[in-house]
């Protein structure tokens, strides 16, 4: 066993992978730290040491040094929200990294195939119909998947380059749905429906409950696992179709799997949390800078980094002001300047 680990380490050093490995472990450590710290933040303060004790209480049977209120806050109030932030951040970031590979473009993001615009339309429509919050989520998820399916269908029939056809179809279907959303906002009742739609579009994790986390985790796991398993193969897609095929890759099948999985996790994220932009663009980029472009490390690093980032931003969103700031606004405030920075240093090998 120890010999095997040693062998793997030697191989990693020989392959110039030591950095990727280190970065992935470091991001994992950051995520754990942010995760524990997040429980202690909030109107009702809980010291980190108590957080750790409360979390591991079922395992180690610590002597109770905390109040019951602390336990309730940690398990029932903060836990679902923190888990949801991690899941959504992980999913959006992984989907962004995957789409960047499929479209051979480091500027691609999870909404490139219209998943977010579709979800927004689905949610707005459900709010207009006066549906419950569960049905709003279901409707957002369904329309999001449907819009990507429409994009894939149009892309299949487009002449010429497959990838360009898909991107153009994504832009068209996306703008169609965003026009639809605008129309719903126009006809929505301005006293209660319109604010609800607007607030939904800004993105927020405030409504997360333990049951939601369970529901969200299923499609996310179904999408994330194949992406992580196939991560090294995604490298080959970035070479372009012809080259990947001559390297023995069934590009049509691999691309389909990656797109379907990425769509699933994007739709699940957006339908539970609303429109949270920038995570899927910015985090894969940061990870590329830190651990290189090899998806073997980029994919897990993006997952961990995305989870840590969105969790940290959500902590700011619920603690900075007395009134919660929608997280979609904050990610844009942090993401947009970063995007400008990327544009200005484009020539230095993204």
């Amino acid at each position: 066993m120890a010999g095997k680990v040693r062998q793997a380490m030697v191989a990693a050093i020989q392959a110039g992978d030591a950095r990727g490995r280190r970065v992935t472990w470091a991001l994992g450590a950051v995520l754990i730290a942010v995760f524990l710290f997040s429980f202690s933040l909030g109107r009702y303060g809980v010291p980190v040491i108590e957080v750790v004790k409360i979390l591991f209480q079922p395992l180690f049977r610590y002597e109770k040094t905390w109040t019951s209120a602390m336990e309730t806050v940690v398990w029932n109030i903060r836990m679902p929200r923190i888990l949801m932030a991690c899941l959504v951040g992980c999913s959006l970031s992984a989907a962004g990294a995957a789409f960047q590979g499929v479209f051979q473009n480091p500027m691609a993001s999870p909404d490139i195939l219209g998943a977010s615009n579709g979800a927004a339309f689905g949610a707005a429509l459900a709010i207009l119909m006066g549906f419950s919050s569960q049905l709003i989520t279901v409707s957002a998820f369904a329309v999001s998947i449907a819009s990507v399916a429409a994009v894939m269908f149009i892309g299949r029939h487009a002449k010429g380059n497959r990838v360009v056809g898909l991107v153009l179809a994504g832009i068209m279907v996306g703008s169609l749905f965003s026009a639809g959303t605008s129309y719903i906002k126009l006809v929505a009742d301005p006293s209660n429906q319109l604010p609800q739609i607007t607030y939904w579009l800004m993105g927020s994790l405030s409504g997360a409950k333990n049951a939601d986390v369970g529901f969200a985790a299923i499609p996310m796991a179904i999408g994330l696992i194949p992406l992580l398993v196939l991560r090294w193969r995604i490298n080959l897609l970035t070479l372009g179709d012809d080259e990947a095929r001559t390297l023995g890759v069934n590009t049509a099948a691999l691309r389909l799997v990656v797109i379907v999985c990425s769509t699933l996790i994007t739709a699940a994220s957006v339908s539970f949390s609303g429109m949270i932009g920038w995570v899927g663009l910015v985090i894969p980029h940061l990870c590329r800078k830190m651990c290189g472009s090899n998806y073997r490390y980029l994919m897990p690093a993006s997952c961990l980094g995305g989870a840590a980032f969105l969790l940290a931003v959500d902590d700011i969103s619920r603690n900075l002001l007395a009134v919660e700031i929608p997280i979609g606004i904050l990610t844009a405030f942090i993401g947009a300047p970063f995007f400008v920075y990327l544009l200005c240093r484009k020539e230095k090998a993204l």
Binding site: G16, Q104, N105, N235, L247, G292, N294
Partner: peptide, 18 residues
């Protein structure tokens, strides 16, 4: 050109994919 910054090792390793 490739939009992504692969190392030479990464690039050559892709040849082993079949």
């Amino acid at each position: 050109g490739n939009a992504f910054g692969y190392s030479v090792m990464d690039m050559v390793l892709m040849g082993t994919s079949p």
